[in-house]
Amino acid sequence: MSGLLTSSIARKVVMALSGIFLVFFLGQHFVINITSVIAPNTFNSWSHFMGYNPLVQYLLQPILIAGVVVHFAMGIALEIQNTRARTVKYAKYKGSANASWISRNMIITGLVVLAFLGLHMYDFWIHEMAYKYIEANPEDPTRYYEETVEKFEPLVRTVIYVASFGLLALHLLHGFASSFQTMGINNKYSPAIQTFTKIYAIGIPLGFAFIAIYHHLNPITH
Protein backbone atom coordinates (compact mmCIF):
# COMPACT_ATOMS: atom_id res chain seq x y z
CA MET A 1 0.00 0.00 0.00
CA SER A 2 2.95 2.37 0.73
CA GLY A 3 3.97 2.22 -2.92
CA LEU A 4 0.55 3.49 -3.88
CA LEU A 5 1.35 6.81 -2.27
CA THR A 6 4.80 7.37 -3.78
CA SER A 7 4.94 5.53 -7.12
CA SER A 8 4.91 7.10 -10.56
CA ILE A 9 1.54 5.50 -11.29
CA ALA A 10 0.04 6.89 -8.07
CA ARG A 11 1.17 10.40 -8.98
CA LYS A 12 -0.34 10.01 -12.44
CA VAL A 13 -3.62 8.79 -10.95
CA VAL A 14 -3.72 11.80 -8.61
CA MET A 15 -3.27 14.04 -11.67
CA ALA A 16 -6.03 12.18 -13.50
CA LEU A 17 -8.56 12.21 -10.65
CA SER A 18 -7.99 15.87 -9.77
CA GLY A 19 -8.18 16.70 -13.49
CA ILE A 20 -11.50 14.92 -13.94
CA PHE A 21 -12.86 16.63 -10.82
CA LEU A 22 -11.87 20.03 -12.26
CA VAL A 23 -13.36 19.15 -15.65
CA PHE A 24 -16.74 18.48 -14.07
CA PHE A 25 -16.48 21.61 -11.93
CA LEU A 26 -15.91 23.52 -15.16
CA GLY A 27 -19.16 22.14 -16.57
CA GLN A 28 -21.09 23.20 -13.49
CA HIS A 29 -19.44 26.66 -13.63
CA PHE A 30 -20.47 27.00 -17.26
CA VAL A 31 -24.10 26.09 -16.56
CA ILE A 32 -24.30 28.88 -13.97
CA ASN A 33 -22.46 31.41 -16.15
CA ILE A 34 -24.56 30.87 -19.27
CA THR A 35 -27.61 31.97 -17.30
CA SER A 36 -26.01 35.45 -17.19
CA VAL A 37 -26.75 35.60 -20.92
CA ILE A 38 -30.13 33.93 -21.10
CA ALA A 39 -31.67 34.64 -17.66
CA PRO A 40 -29.93 37.31 -15.51
CA ASN A 41 -32.34 36.82 -12.58
CA THR A 42 -31.52 33.09 -12.46
CA PHE A 43 -27.82 34.01 -12.60
CA ASN A 44 -28.30 36.31 -9.61
CA SER A 45 -30.16 33.74 -7.53
CA TRP A 46 -27.77 30.86 -8.36
CA SER A 47 -24.72 33.05 -7.71
CA HIS A 48 -26.20 34.15 -4.39
CA PHE A 49 -26.83 30.54 -3.45
CA MET A 50 -23.23 29.61 -4.31
CA GLY A 51 -21.92 32.61 -2.39
CA TYR A 52 -23.84 32.09 0.83
CA ASN A 53 -24.76 28.41 1.12
CA PRO A 54 -22.67 27.03 4.01
CA LEU A 55 -22.22 23.64 2.30
CA VAL A 56 -20.81 25.30 -0.82
CA GLN A 57 -18.73 27.83 1.08
CA TYR A 58 -17.24 25.68 3.81
CA LEU A 59 -17.10 22.23 2.21
CA LEU A 60 -17.22 22.36 -1.60
CA GLN A 61 -15.12 25.52 -1.99
CA PRO A 62 -12.17 24.18 0.07
CA ILE A 63 -12.40 20.86 -1.85
CA LEU A 64 -12.28 22.79 -5.12
CA ILE A 65 -9.27 24.86 -4.01
CA ALA A 66 -7.55 21.66 -2.86
CA GLY A 67 -8.28 20.06 -6.24
CA VAL A 68 -6.72 23.00 -8.09
CA VAL A 69 -3.65 23.09 -5.81
CA VAL A 70 -3.10 19.32 -6.00
CA HIS A 71 -3.49 19.23 -9.80
CA PHE A 72 -1.04 22.04 -10.42
CA ALA A 73 1.47 21.09 -7.71
CA MET A 74 1.56 17.47 -8.89
CA GLY A 75 1.78 18.58 -12.53
CA ILE A 76 4.80 20.76 -11.79
CA ALA A 77 6.43 18.03 -9.63
CA LEU A 78 5.98 15.47 -12.42
CA GLU A 79 7.36 17.90 -15.00
CA ILE A 80 10.51 18.42 -12.89
CA GLN A 81 10.91 14.64 -12.49
CA ASN A 82 10.38 14.10 -16.23
CA THR A 83 12.96 16.74 -17.12
CA ARG A 84 15.47 15.02 -14.84
CA ALA A 85 14.88 11.70 -16.59
CA ARG A 86 16.76 13.00 -19.65
CA THR A 87 19.75 15.01 -18.50
CA VAL A 88 21.47 15.16 -21.92
CA LYS A 89 19.09 16.45 -24.56
CA TYR A 90 19.01 15.29 -28.17
CA ALA A 91 20.76 17.45 -30.76
CA LYS A 92 17.78 16.67 -32.97
CA TYR A 93 14.41 15.63 -31.54
CA LYS A 94 11.45 15.26 -33.88
CA GLY A 95 8.61 15.23 -31.37
CA SER A 96 6.04 16.20 -33.99
CA ALA A 97 6.67 12.92 -35.85
CA ASN A 98 5.00 10.82 -33.20
CA ALA A 99 2.94 13.00 -30.86
CA SER A 100 0.68 16.05 -31.06
CA TRP A 101 1.86 19.50 -29.95
CA ILE A 102 -0.94 19.56 -27.40
CA SER A 103 0.12 16.32 -25.70
CA ARG A 104 3.77 17.42 -25.58
CA ASN A 105 3.07 20.85 -24.11
CA MET A 106 0.56 20.27 -21.32
CA ILE A 107 2.86 22.12 -18.93
CA ILE A 108 2.71 25.26 -21.11
CA THR A 109 -1.08 25.25 -21.53
CA GLY A 110 -1.39 24.29 -17.85
CA LEU A 111 0.77 27.19 -16.65
CA VAL A 112 -1.18 29.63 -18.82
CA VAL A 113 -4.42 28.35 -17.30
CA LEU A 114 -2.84 28.71 -13.85
CA ALA A 115 -1.90 32.33 -14.60
CA PHE A 116 -5.43 32.92 -15.86
CA LEU A 117 -6.81 31.42 -12.64
CA GLY A 118 -4.77 33.98 -10.71
CA LEU A 119 -6.42 36.80 -12.68
CA HIS A 120 -9.84 35.16 -12.38
CA MET A 121 -9.49 34.80 -8.59
CA TYR A 122 -8.37 38.43 -8.35
CA ASP A 123 -11.33 39.55 -10.46
CA PHE A 124 -14.07 37.61 -8.72
CA TRP A 125 -13.08 35.56 -5.68
CA ILE A 126 -10.93 38.13 -3.87
CA HIS A 127 -13.51 40.81 -4.63
CA GLU A 128 -16.21 38.53 -3.21
CA MET A 129 -14.22 37.75 -0.06
CA ALA A 130 -13.56 41.46 0.51
CA TYR A 131 -17.24 42.30 -0.07
CA LYS A 132 -18.46 39.72 2.41
CA TYR A 133 -15.82 39.45 5.10
CA ILE A 134 -13.73 42.65 5.10
CA GLU A 135 -16.25 45.29 4.10
CA ALA A 136 -18.98 43.21 5.80
CA ASN A 137 -21.62 44.35 3.34
CA PRO A 138 -25.17 43.05 3.76
CA GLU A 139 -26.46 40.32 1.48
CA ASP A 140 -27.65 41.59 -1.91
CA PRO A 141 -29.01 38.82 -4.14
CA THR A 142 -29.34 41.18 -7.14
CA ARG A 143 -25.76 42.45 -7.53
CA TYR A 144 -24.04 39.55 -9.34
CA TYR A 145 -25.24 40.11 -12.89
CA GLU A 146 -24.15 43.75 -12.99
CA GLU A 147 -20.81 43.02 -11.35
CA THR A 148 -20.10 40.29 -13.89
CA VAL A 149 -21.02 42.31 -16.95
CA GLU A 150 -18.94 45.26 -15.70
CA LYS A 151 -15.89 43.03 -15.52
CA PHE A 152 -15.98 42.49 -19.27
CA GLU A 153 -16.21 46.16 -20.23
CA PRO A 154 -12.42 46.51 -20.78
CA LEU A 155 -11.38 44.97 -24.12
CA VAL A 156 -8.01 43.84 -22.70
CA ARG A 157 -9.61 41.72 -20.00
CA THR A 158 -12.06 40.18 -22.49
CA VAL A 159 -9.20 39.32 -24.87
CA ILE A 160 -7.15 37.76 -22.03
CA TYR A 161 -10.14 35.69 -20.95
CA VAL A 162 -10.91 34.48 -24.49
CA ALA A 163 -7.25 33.62 -25.19
CA SER A 164 -7.06 31.71 -21.90
CA PHE A 165 -10.18 29.75 -22.80
CA GLY A 166 -8.44 28.80 -26.06
CA LEU A 167 -5.49 27.37 -24.17
CA LEU A 168 -7.82 25.71 -21.69
CA ALA A 169 -9.45 23.94 -24.66
CA LEU A 170 -6.05 22.66 -25.81
CA HIS A 171 -5.28 21.45 -22.27
CA LEU A 172 -8.59 19.62 -22.00
CA LEU A 173 -8.29 18.08 -25.48
CA HIS A 174 -5.40 15.96 -24.29
CA GLY A 175 -5.97 15.88 -20.56
CA PHE A 176 -9.54 14.64 -20.31
CA ALA A 177 -9.28 11.45 -22.38
CA SER A 178 -5.74 10.94 -21.11
CA SER A 179 -7.07 10.77 -17.53
CA PHE A 180 -9.09 7.67 -18.38
CA GLN A 181 -6.04 5.96 -19.92
CA THR A 182 -4.10 6.72 -16.73
CA MET A 183 -6.80 5.13 -14.61
CA GLY A 184 -6.55 1.99 -16.69
CA ILE A 185 -9.56 2.55 -18.91
CA ASN A 186 -8.57 1.66 -22.46
CA ASN A 187 -11.31 -0.50 -23.93
CA LYS A 188 -14.28 -0.49 -26.30
CA TYR A 189 -15.57 2.70 -24.65
CA SER A 190 -12.36 4.64 -25.38
CA PRO A 191 -13.50 5.95 -28.80
CA ALA A 192 -16.66 7.31 -27.13
CA ILE A 193 -14.52 8.93 -24.40
CA GLN A 194 -12.34 10.50 -27.13
CA THR A 195 -15.41 11.88 -28.91
CA PHE A 196 -16.90 13.23 -25.66
CA THR A 197 -13.52 14.81 -24.85
CA LYS A 198 -13.46 16.65 -28.17
CA ILE A 199 -17.02 17.94 -27.75
CA TYR A 200 -16.50 18.95 -24.11
CA ALA A 201 -12.99 20.37 -24.52
CA ILE A 202 -14.03 22.62 -27.40
CA GLY A 203 -17.64 23.27 -26.40
CA ILE A 204 -17.20 24.42 -22.81
CA PRO A 205 -14.30 26.88 -23.41
CA LEU A 206 -16.10 28.13 -26.53
CA GLY A 207 -19.17 28.74 -24.36
CA PHE A 208 -17.12 30.64 -21.77
CA ALA A 209 -15.56 32.73 -24.55
CA PHE A 210 -19.04 33.47 -25.93
CA ILE A 211 -20.20 34.69 -22.50
CA ALA A 212 -17.18 37.00 -22.15
CA ILE A 213 -17.61 38.43 -25.67
CA TYR A 214 -21.39 38.75 -25.24
CA HIS A 215 -21.01 40.82 -22.07
CA HIS A 216 -18.28 42.94 -23.62
CA LEU A 217 -20.55 43.76 -26.54
CA ASN A 218 -23.63 44.31 -24.37
CA PRO A 219 -22.52 46.58 -21.50
CA ILE A 220 -25.02 47.79 -18.90
CA THR A 221 -26.04 51.37 -19.62
CA HIS A 222 -27.18 53.38 -16.62
Partner: peptide, 22 residues
Protein backbone atom coordinates in the same frame (compact mmCIF):
# COMPACT_ATOMS: atom_id res chain seq x y z
CA UNK B 1 8.51 -4.07 -11.55
CA UNK B 2 6.97 -0.59 -11.19
CA UNK B 3 9.12 0.04 -8.10
CA UNK B 4 12.25 -0.95 -10.03
CA UNK B 5 11.19 1.18 -13.00
CA UNK B 6 10.87 4.19 -10.70
CA UNK B 7 14.21 3.43 -9.00
CA UNK B 8 16.00 3.40 -12.35
CA UNK B 9 15.10 7.07 -12.87
CA UNK B 10 12.79 6.83 -15.86
CA UNK B 11 10.21 9.60 -16.31
CA UNK B 12 6.44 9.40 -16.10
CA UNK B 13 4.09 8.62 -18.95
CA UNK B 14 2.01 11.61 -20.06
CA UNK B 15 0.10 9.65 -22.69
CA UNK B 16 1.57 11.41 -25.73
CA UNK B 17 1.56 8.08 -27.57
CA UNK B 18 5.04 8.62 -29.04
CA UNK B 19 6.24 5.26 -27.70
CA UNK B 20 3.48 3.34 -29.46
CA UNK B 21 4.20 5.09 -32.78
CA UNK B 22 7.95 4.50 -32.60
Amino acid sequence: MVRQMDLEGFGNCTNTGACEIE
